[in-house]
Structures are given as C-alpha cells and as structure tokens.
Amino acid sequence: MALLSAKGLNMSFGGLKALKDVSFSVEPGTIKALIGPNGAGKTTLFNLISGYLKPNSGVIVFDGRQIQGLPPHRIASYGIARTFQHIRLFPGMTVLENVMLGLHTHTRSGFLSSMLRLPRTRNEERFVREEAMQVLKMMGIEDLADREATRLAYGQQRIVEIARALAQKPKLLLLDEPAAGLNIRETRQMGILIHQIRQSGVTVFIVEHDMSLVMEISDEVMVLSYGEKIAEDHPLAIQKNEEVIKVYLGEEDAQN
C-alpha cells in the first residue's frame, strides 16, 4: 500500500489555479521526485501535504489516515517532516536546540512540569539532548552543535534543517529544493545524504531543479506544469518523455 496518496487535488489562489486535479502516490521506502518549471505548483503541493494549505477539493491519505485540511502540527505528529524552499531555522537558537525542537512530538513535558523541573522533565531533557546529538553526529555536524544556526554558511544551514526534520523520526520526509544554492560538491554530498536517509527507512519526496541529482537518486519522477500532472514515470522514461521535453525546452535543464 502507498505511504502517501492523493486524489483529485485542486487548489486555487483567487483566479489562479495552482493545482488542477492532481493525483499520485508515493510508495514506502522510495525516493520520489517532483519537478516542473517555476510556478508549476510544486511548493503548493507540499503545502497541501504538510497542512499549511487546505485543498479546495481532493483527498490526501497518509499511512491510512485522511490528512487534508488538518493543522500542520497534527500532520507532523503522524510522521511527516519537511524542509522549506527558503530555509526556516530558528534565530537565536543553537544548532543543537534547533534539532532538539525536532523531538517535540516525541516528548511530553508541559508548562507546569517544565517550570518545576520535575525529575521526569529532567530525564526527558537529557534524552532529547542525546538524541539530537546523535542526529548531528550522523550528519557529521556535531562540531557545530553550539553555534547559532542562522549564522552558519548556507550549505550548513540546509543540513541543519534536514537534521531537525530527521529528529522528528518521520516516515515521510518532504524536501523542497534541498540543493538550491549549493555548489557542485555540496550537491553531490546532498545526493549521498538523501540516499542514506532512504537507506535508514525514511521515504523521501523531493522537489528539485537540479536534473542530474533528480535522475541519479529518484526511483520515480512526477512532473507538474501549470498545476497539471503531465507525467509520472521512472527517471529514464521521464528523460525521453516528449511532453516533458517540450515543457523544459528552452530551459537550461532541458539539455540533460
């Protein structure tokens, strides 16, 4: 059974139809890529899945539950984590604290027990710290733990954002252009990282403009153009798909 599936999604902003009758599914344990020209509706689709937007119509089923229209924090607690096209880290907080926040849904301490620093809360705090540190180690950025996250180099910030998402121990990870703004070497490392993430059992749904990265890592590719799904296939088939080539013609990525 698909981990995530959507049927007949429609979303419009005023007169603009950002998504038109989009249906698809993501199989567990795979990496699925979502591509399409600027303004195709890729981020909008991610916003529907993660609960930031409510579709005008359509159904989204994740892990056997209908999730369309639920608040983002609820969807997060069901096991969907995401990163943002424009990096969203918490200013004034260290890298470690940013990642610790990822464990929010796995912990319980409320206002009262936190204020009183009850033993249970202290244990939980230790657990969160260790877990977060573990994630940083896995990503090879443990030496950045005490640095302020928003002051890091751009590439490092991207990694921290993914670390925070992984700390949520998601079943599904949504990555919105994780390689944007990275150089060639960093992009290659990102590819390796995404592979590792899938290896660890997390299903990945990724929006990406870098075609060579997409073709290299994904099991399946879906193409959006002006809010419509025009193709969904294996990477090699997508490369040969006439309609996809037409959409990308004139764009730099078409050469690949």
Binding site: S50, G51, Y52, P71, P72, H73, A76, S77, A81, R82, F84, R88, L89, F90, P91, G92, M93, E97, M100, L101, G102, H104, T105, T107, S109, G110, F111, S114, M115, L116, R117, T121, E124, E125, V128, R164, A165, Q168
Partner: peptide, 26 residues
Amino acid sequence: NLINSRVGRALRAIHGAEDAAESAGV
C-alpha cells in the same frame, strides 16, 4: 526553568519561525 525546557524551546521557535515550529509538531 521554563525557558530552558521543551516548552521554552517551542516558545522561542514560535518567535523565530512560526511555520517551521508548526511543521516540527508544535
């Protein structure tokens, strides 16, 4: 105590980037 806790982190996260805090389950 509160500020240096799970709740305090969530509050500071809301201050810094509310949408990201939501997506982390807050």
